[in-house]
Design a protein around this nucleic acid. Structure first.
Lengths: 201, 201
DNA sequence: CGGCGTTTTGAGAGAGCTCAACATCGGTGG
DNA sequence: CCACCGATGTTGAGCTCTCTCAAAACGCCG
């Protein structure tokens, strides 16, 4: 769900861009909230620092992700945002966003819709993490990401990325895929995995 | 974030209640969407059935949770909702909710705010699941749920519930807590856990 | 008092992680 | 065009850690 699909053009035009070097803070806990933030390039992590000075990562956002949605409704940030790599972000001023929502209920609803969709997706991912077995987790992933035919999954990124999304080490993923291919449950091609025998348990 | 905190009273009044027996479907994939649903009692799972006839659980909701937020923006349900136990649910008709949002931007924004907060919480939980070690996961949980003093965590439910939330078996949680207590890192009282030595790594 | 669910501890096994070596691929520059 | 290099992909071996199965103490409620 890209920003441009729901944020009015007028608001998008009001955005400012900012460049961050690795380790630089986009904002800190307690700062006055500026607005919605879209990651254009690089990685930005949201984190809190506990009493021990230990950093607790809440989320890692990459290109296309938005962060600080909740900041629209809060005067201060509730955590730190630190660039993990050199990064470029685009900031949509809070006031512009909120007033657009106020004037245009459609836009507000569209925003709600994207959030509701995000909630769905995140809940699905959490449920996926409850699966212990690497094999089952991969099966789940394939079933959930299968295309229209219900059998073919097109890989957007690298297998390493998939492994991270699944919460597995890349080695474990490679092995599991190899094992599934060995028993004929899947077939693999470049950037594509096909489940060989649907309709089976 | 309880429903009554953001849903206008007029909409709440329009709600209907429904009683489900274990295994009964609240709705099925493809059904026309009725509205927002709040779980009053029992457990309801959201699931999809894949080509193999295998059920993929997307989410399990308990009392106080809302489900089908995204259904407000879709004509049909995208998954099944099945009662895992006998359950009672309250349904807020889609039309009433949407028209309330349309009339009252404040209500729409309040809805967005709860969703944004949910997204935050869910992302945090996902990040937590990336922690492999039971001990680290428990530390993370304690740090994240500490009260105002940053050292004391008050348990709302049973330890078994906490274990489920952490994605650990209850045995693993008991053992980990016992170990942490043994080395003096935490102290435990009835429904309360205190981190003994803050400001340490 | 009796029963049920939570809490606790024990022992064993399996599964994924870690460390390590190597193959493969794509891009870069000479 | 080819050598080089870094990142991705792949496989091996050992080890740690959690899960599983089991049994028992504990606490709460009827």
């Amino acid at each position: 769900m890209a920003i441009k699909d729901w944020l009015p053009a007028a608001v998008r035009a009001a955005a400012t861009e900012r460049r961050l070097t690795a380790g630089e803070a986009l904002f800190r806990l307690g700062d006055k909230t500026a607005g919605l933030c879209e990651i254009v390039a690089g990685r930005v992590r949201l984190a809190r620092v506990d009493r021990d000075g230990h950093e607790i990562v809440l989320h890692v956002a990459g290109p296309g992700d938005t962060i600080a949605e909740a900041s629209l409704f809060s005067p201060q940030y509730h955590c730190d945002a630190i660039a993990s790599t050199d990064a470029v972000v685009r900031i949509y001023p809070k006031r512009a966003v909120l007033s657009a929502f106020d004037r245009d209920p459609k836009a507000a609803l569209a925003f709600s819709a994207t959030l509701a969709r995000q909630v769905m997706g995140l809940r699905t991912r959490i449920e996926q993490r409850n699966i212990r077995s690497a094999r089952e987790r991969v099966r789940n992933y394939l079933a959930l990401n299968a295309g229209a035919d219900g059998r073919t999954v097109t890989l957007t990124g690298t297998l390493k990325d998939v492994a991270a999304e699944l919460g597995l080490t890349h080695e474990a993923l490679y092995r599991t895929l190899a094992a599934l291919e060995r028993v004929g449950e899947i077939r693999r091609a470049k950037h594509m995995i096909t489940v060989a025998r649907p309709r089976r348990v």
